[in-house]
Design a protein around this nucleic acid. Structure first.
Lengths: 219, 219
DNA sequence: GAAGTCATTGAATGAACATTCGATGAATTC
DNA sequence: GAATTCATCGAATGTTCATTCAATGACTTC
């Protein structure tokens, strides 16, 4: 009512607000459904039952199951992007601080919630859904990769490490993060969030001993 | 006919042999189907169409879709186990050789074929299928983990590395292998099998410089 | 407060699904 | 070579799925 913003996403009326909430509610229900039953066990009936609404409503809000799934991915990707970009980027931050911030955002509580890991990896693992997934998430992955490469390039220059290829190193590290995610999902008992984050940092410290005081894995 | 073996799996008649081949053929078709359409897009109709047989036949040989999928997992697991156990374990092999053999078997051509990676990770990613998967594969994972821990424990003793926890290190390395698998599947262009194997070895060399001559990442 | 728009329902629709089964002919046994 | 067991087919069955739609009432606009 009192809002005259140009932003299209700003809800102006009570109805628009309720609509956004409904969409959100359905997205959350879909996340829970995928986490519990897998992508192959996720049906409109189950999703809407979890959300406590009728089957028709989901199609009213998202037009089709595919678009609902795309909205779920987008929601997760937006959350990750927001978390990653909100990291402190002040001009006085050292390269090692920046790298640590990337690791921290990768292993943030919000991101590593079991239900969300389950969804992310479900899309990674399903050939059919992978296409939708990559369209929505690909850009962010590239952004983050570029940022990591820049940071590591700087660290190499600072530390005088020789024989290290920045791109190569970043790809290996990203693979390790992904692998830790997978293991958190598969073996939640042995792979706790903070332990995984520390594991990743320890590996980094071993690679760049001059940037990270103690190298707990090797000393 | 001429065979009087006690082994139940030894085909005695032409019929039994043909039956085993049919089963194998259906398993291969299922692998291709999962790789192409994902677990959620894998139907009995599609599988049997790929195999060029009727729908009824798959149920005749495997009783149900679930049992067919279990047979697929078992087939893949057996292949991995065979490859891993066939590594040279002569008494004169050094600890570093043994560790290298484990990495080699993890990144063997047969294992890293795209269609097989797709299946393995599809089961990892699907909440519903994960249960079947773990029942079949869990044991082998544990075996391999224990073997790795033993090797690394020996390497630590030999090299006098301090502050390294063997279990911790093995879990991190296994996570890295898994992550590299995932990336081979997701980005086959950037992540080639041999490059990934080398990446893993380079990381290991960095951790255990006394056991692996050059440490190509850091020197 | 009247007119119009929007959110919601649940039953209806038709496609796709896993599984069953009788029929058929080929391989095996005696 | 007759009897029997087995592998294969494809149509039939009953279920579950995503999607549609007419009906309803609540909210918004004027």
């Amino acid at each position: 009512m009192n809002e005259t913003s140009h932003k299209p996403e700003a809800p102006r009326t009570a109805r628009a607000e309720a609509k956004a909430e409904r969409r959100q509610q359905l997205i959350e229900a879909t996340i829970d459904c995928i986490a519990k039953f897998g992508l192959s066990g996720t049906t409109m009936a189950r999703v809407t039952e979890l959300a406590g609404v009728s089957v028709g409503l989901a199609n009213f809000h998202f037009d089709s199951k595919d678009l609902l799934l795309a909205a779920v991915i987008k929601h997760l990707a937006d959350e990750q992007r927001a978390l990653w970009q909100s990291r402190d980027q002040g001009p006085d931050r050292s390269s090692s601080d920046l790298l640590r911030a990337i690791v921290d955002s990768r292993f943030h509580t919000k991101i590593c919630a079991r239900r969300k890991l389950a969804v992310t990896l479900a899309f990674d693992g399903d050939a059919g859904a992978r296409e939708i997934y990559r369209r929505v998430v690909g850009d962010m992955d590239d952004e983050r990769l570029d940022a990591s490469v820049a940071i590591i390039t700087e660290m190499i220059a600072e530390g005088g490490y020789t024989g290290i290829d920045p791109v190569e190193t970043v790809l290996t590290l990203e693979a390790m993060y992904d692998g830790l995610w997978l293991n958190m999902l598969l073996y939640p008992g042995e792979f706790r969030r903070t332990a995984c984050r520390d594991r990743a940092m320890r590996m980094i410290a071993t690679l760049f001993p001059k940037h990270f005081d103690a190298s707990p894995l090797a000393g």
